[in-house]
Design a protein around this nucleic acid. Structure first.
Length: 592
RNA sequence: GGGGUCGUAGCUCAGUUUGGUUAGAGCGCUGGCCUGUCACGCCAGAGGUCGCGAGUUCGAGUCUCGUCGGCCCCGCCA
């Protein structure tokens, strides 16, 4: 590097730099060797600049440039000059100019890359993950990682200026009941005891409120030992925050400000506030899910009352046995072919439906459908009225238990919207509020917390805790973007007596509550302020902002579906000596 | 734990339906030529455990069974 000092980035040499002597450093993206004249596309984090090696400018570097190969690391010094007439490349930001090399230094050679760095071709993900350091050099990945950085910066800006303190909480903590499977860490100095990696800093941030910190945030890693998905990794990042002396209105308002600031600062997108709000009940009834995509209609409409009296036995028996019948109107989609409908039926069956009834509305308003004959004209009219049906529309029916109807029609409307390009908005947020406090867990035979056990019940429902827990609404709220849950939070319980009642409703014995959460109960009794907060899934948020389908594309070093790092080969075996130190005996065999 | 899908040259893929000559293409790679290219061009060349293992067959990239791995989904994820 002696004699070389980087003066510019590959995207900062422009018309304004013409005539200046600059030094660039970066990687060889491509070499175009004309024998007498050699062109290099030089790439760094910021962009691409064309470098020309000409013997009349510098014979020695021209000679050396013959040896350059893809991904060699080089430093070049020379003057920026305009390209000859007609030789400009409009595809490059620096395409009007080029660097005429007067001095070339090869800083490092490189093996031929295992896959091309240009983005024309999709590369198998296992290769990308094995050679992540190559994958991350690709401009698209640089953009994603850079966006993630900018999002974090904008979040900190906003929260810092709103009087929040950034405070770290322990990674080595204790396992608590409820929730996901924990990642465990054995303790060397406490034989037979284990730390757990945090699923979220939930209790610690509440303790910080009790400790009088008033406003806390942290961009923090969380760990859950559950199976992976495109939007789920075993370790993921949250923007976690908590505030004292507030209610849900103030939190939602502040969070809308935060999100607006982030989108404005990083993408230049102006979001309209306040965001739309739905209660859990509404979201389920109208969209079939608690994370509705509200960018398009096709809402679920209940027709159980009409179905109960119709001539179709299936509809009758389902409504009679406590199930429901709902329908969606796929406007203008009556052109779906028999084969399309078979595919959709299969899709519905895959989600647990027994079948998928449909009705096409013909020009004269009459029904074309295998089930048309089971409905009187009046019933047909009533259904069409309720769905706003017009010629060219097709109705789809879901008849089953509530949960199945919601799932099937909810997924179906999203699938149809995607396939028929009904989604035009880039970003649409919605709050979902008034979640049930608890839900019944068939396997465990008890109620479990829908959000977490520290969520405050709605005050007017408090007295139902002992009589009808399922009817108690919570003070929890989720924030949903484009049909994906990107955050959630709640007002917390700040009175020990209420916390104890909730534990009881969850069938957590006083003994267990004392063992596992005694310190929290004690802390609540020490003068806990009313408080609440929220956590954003940073990976999901950035994924949506970057327009990607998987959070792996916005995480520098993600894991595969089997929770392995293909680059570092984690997890890996350890020595017997290491195990012995931790008092672990590896004599468990996975049963075949 | 379950369902689906993919695995052929360094990369992206064709070939598998209907088993049959020496397994192909584009890109990349190597060497040569080339002073205005930018997905440079031209010439020549190298490169294969058809994921792995059994089986069926005269013969398997192709059929069967098993297995490993990537991805998507269900369960799971307060």
């Amino acid at each position: 590097m002696k004699g070389f000092r980087r003066t510019h980035d590959c995207n900062t040499v422009t018309e304004e730099t013409i005539g200046q002597e600059v030094t660039l450093m970066g990687w060889v993206l491509r070499r175009r060797d004309h024998g007498g004249l050699i062109f290099i596309d030089l790439r760094d984090r910021k962009g691409i600049t064309q470098v020309v090696f000409a013997p009349e400018v510098d014979a020695e570097s021209h000679e050396k440039a013959h040896r350059l190969r893809s991904e060699y690391v080089i430093a070049v010094r020379g003057k920026i000059r305009t390209r000859p007439d007609g030789m400009e490349n409009p595809k490059l930001k620096t395409g009007m100019v080029e660097l005429a090399c007067e001095d070339l230094r090869i800083l490092n050679t490189a093996a031929t890359p295992p896959f091309p760095l240009d983005e024309e071709e999709e590369v198998a993900e296992n290769l990308r993950l094995k050679y992540r350091y190559i994958d991350l050099r690709r401009p698209h990945m640089v953009e994603n990682i850079t966006l993630r950085h900018s999002v974090c910066q904008a979040m900190r800006e906003f929260l810092n200026s709103n009087d929040f303190l950034e405070i770290e909480t322990p990674m080595l903590t204790r396992s608590t009941p409820e929730g996901a499977r924990d990642y465990l860490v054995p303790s060397r100095v406490n034989a037979g005891k284990f730390y757990a990696l945090p699923q979220s800093p939930q209790i610690y941030k509440q303790i910080l409120m009790i400790a009088g910190m008033e406003r806390y945030y942290q961009i923090v890693r969380c760990f859950r030992d559950e199976d992976l998905r495109a939007d789920r990794q075993p370790e993921f990042t949250q923007l976690d925050l908590e505030m004292s002396f507030i209610d849900e209105e103030q939190i939602m308002e502040l969070m809308e400000g935060l999100i607006s600031h982030v989108f404005n600062k990083t993408l230049g997108v102006e979001l309209a506030t306040p965001f739309e709000r739905l209660t859990y009940q509404e979201a389920m009834e109208r969209f079939g899910t608690d994370r509705p995509d509200v960018r398009f209609g096709m809402e679920l409409v209940d027709i159980s009352d009409i179905a109960a009296g119709c001539g179709l036995k299936v509809f009758q028996s389902i409504t009679a046995s406590g199930g429901i019948v709902k329908a969606i109107n796929a406007r203008g989609m009556a052109d779906l072919s028999r084969k399309d409908l078979d595919v959709l039926t299969e899709f519905a069956q895959g989600l647990g439906a027994k079948g998928l009834a449909w009705v096409k509305v013909k020009e004269d308003g009459s029904w074309q459908s295998p089930i048309a004959k089971f409905f009187t004209n009046e019933e047909q009219q009533a259904i069409a009225d309720r769905l706003g049906g017009e010629p060219g529309d097709i109705f789809f029916f879901g008849a089953d238990t509530r949960a199945t109807v919601f799932r099937v029609l909810g997924e179906l409307r999203c699938k149809l919207a995607r396939e028929r390009n009904l989604i035009h908005e880039r970003f649409r947020f919605v709050w979902v509020t008034d979640f049930p406090l608890v839900e019944y867990d068939e396997d465990e035979g008890r109620f479990t917390a829908m959000h977490h056990p520290f969520t405050a019940p709605a005050e007017e429902d408090l007295d139902l805790l002992e009589t009808d827990p399922a009817a108690v609404r919570s003070r929890a709220y989720d924030i949903v973007l484009n049909g994906i849950e990107i955050g959630g939070g709640s007002i917390r319980i700040h009175q020990p007596a209420v916390q104890e009642r909730v534990f009881r409703a969850l069938s957590i014995s006083d003994q267990e509550a004392q063992d596992k959460f005694g310190f929290l109960l004690e802390a609540l009794g020490s003068g806990a302020p009313p408080h609440g907060g929220l956590a954003f899934g940073l990976d999901r948020l950035v994924m949506l902002m970057a327009g990607r389908d998987s959070i792996r594309d916005v995480i520098a070093f993600p894991k595969t579906q089997k929770a392995q790092c293909l680059m570092a080969h984690a997890p890996a075996e350890v020595s017997m000596a290491q195990l012995a130190e931790l008092y672990l005996k590896p004599d468990w065999k996975k049963e075949k």
